[in-house]
Amino acid sequence: MSDRQPTHPLTGAELSARLHGLAAHHAALAPTTGAQVRNRAVRRRRTRHAALAVTTLAAALIAVTTGALDALGALGSSAGPTAPPAASASHNPTPDPSSMPVQQVTVDLNSESLSVGGRRYAIAGPKDTCPIGETSVTVTAKYPTLTMPSTAGGKGGAADVRRWAVTFTDRSHHERLLRWVTDDESFALGYHTNPGAIGLGPGNGKEAYDAIRPGARVKIKGWQAPDAQPDSACPDRRPITSDR
């Protein structure tokens, strides 16, 4: 006699539950389809893209924050002293013409000489009765030829033309003759013979004329008579007019 218990027939509900369980187990063990593989790959790519976007956004945020902090630091430091830029070793400033030294000319009436640019020239000084009357003057202008104002007694006579003339402005603001050059080879240098100005000989008078520049400061040394005869007797002392 057998020991096995008699098998009871399954109900419809039990049979249905068992079939559903077998189907689920079979689906889990069944190989993955191509569509499922593609879906899983798409999900993985989307996950990687999302992570990359988050990383990029974080880096951009850090850069913006750092730039803002640097800008705030620069604004905060602008109120303080700023160190001057280092000078360029190759920079050579252009000299200012106004800072150039004034040319110095010396007239020594005692030694009858004129000194300019390291050269010394013999002169004929003014007569004692027709002194220049100045001790420091500034050269006003230079003229290759200059016609002097005529004297009352010189009307109708030959024009008094001076060559290589240099003029100055006196204390009365009159332009006057300072020096001139004669064409006479027998010109008596070393004597006081001129009626109120300085004379130079033809040998080096033009050279001295070229050496003197307008604006030069002329120092007049030596003895001069305290009083002078009138301009009628000292024609070189007469103010030069615009009619030259």
Rank of each mutant, 00 (worst) to 15 (best):
T145V: 13
M1K: 05
T32H: 13
R244M: 04
V139K: 01
H91L: 11
M100K: 08
T138E: 02
A197E: 01
Q5F: 08
D243V: 07
T106R: 03
T55L: 10
H174N: 15
A30N: 03
M148K: 05
H174M: 07
L69A: 14
A41Y: 05
L61M: 13
V218C: 02
T65P: 01
L200Q: 13
L10Y: 00
R43A: 12
R48W: 12
M1Y: 04
K155V: 07
L114S: 06
P95Q: 15
L72I: 13
A53F: 01
P97M: 08
A233T: 12
A28L: 10
R38T: 13
K127Y: 01
T11M: 06
G201V: 10
V161R: 04
G12T: 15
V139T: 00
T47Q: 14
H20C: 10
S78P: 00
K155R: 06
P239R: 04
D160E: 12
C234A: 01
L72Y: 09
Q229H: 06
S172R: 11
P149Q: 07
V102A: 00
R46A: 06
V166G: 03
F187N: 06
T11K: 04
R43V: 13
I123T: 15
T145K: 15
G154W: 03
G205K: 06
P9I: 01
S242H: 09
R238F: 04
G73K: 07
N204I: 03
T169D: 01
G157A: 09
K155N: 05
R18F: 04
P239M: 04
A63K: 02
A53M: 03
K219D: 02
A28K: 11
M100N: 09
R237I: 03
G21E: 15
A17Y: 02
D96I: 06
F187W: 10
V166F: 02
K206T: 08
T193N: 06
R40H: 10
R44V: 12
S111I: 00
V64E: 05
P239W: 04
I62Q: 00
V218R: 02
T138Y: 00
M100I: 02
V166Y: 01
G73M: 05
T66R: 11
W180A: 07
S88I: 00
A208K: 00
T7K: 14
S99D: 14
G12S: 14
M148S: 10
K221F: 04
Q229G: 06
S115Q: 02
A68W: 14
P144N: 13
P230I: 03
T167G: 08
R176V: 08
Q36G: 10
A74P: 00
A24W: 05
V42G: 02
Q36D: 13
T193Q: 03
I62W: 01
Q5M: 09
T182M: 03
D243G: 08
V54Q: 14
A165P: 01
P144G: 06
P93Y: 09
N39D: 15
L57W: 11
R217H: 06
G125P: 03
Y191M: 05
T151A: 06
S99P: 00
G73H: 10
S99H: 09
A208V: 03
Y121S: 04
V42L: 05
A23R: 15
F187C: 11
V37G: 04
V64I: 15
E134W: 10
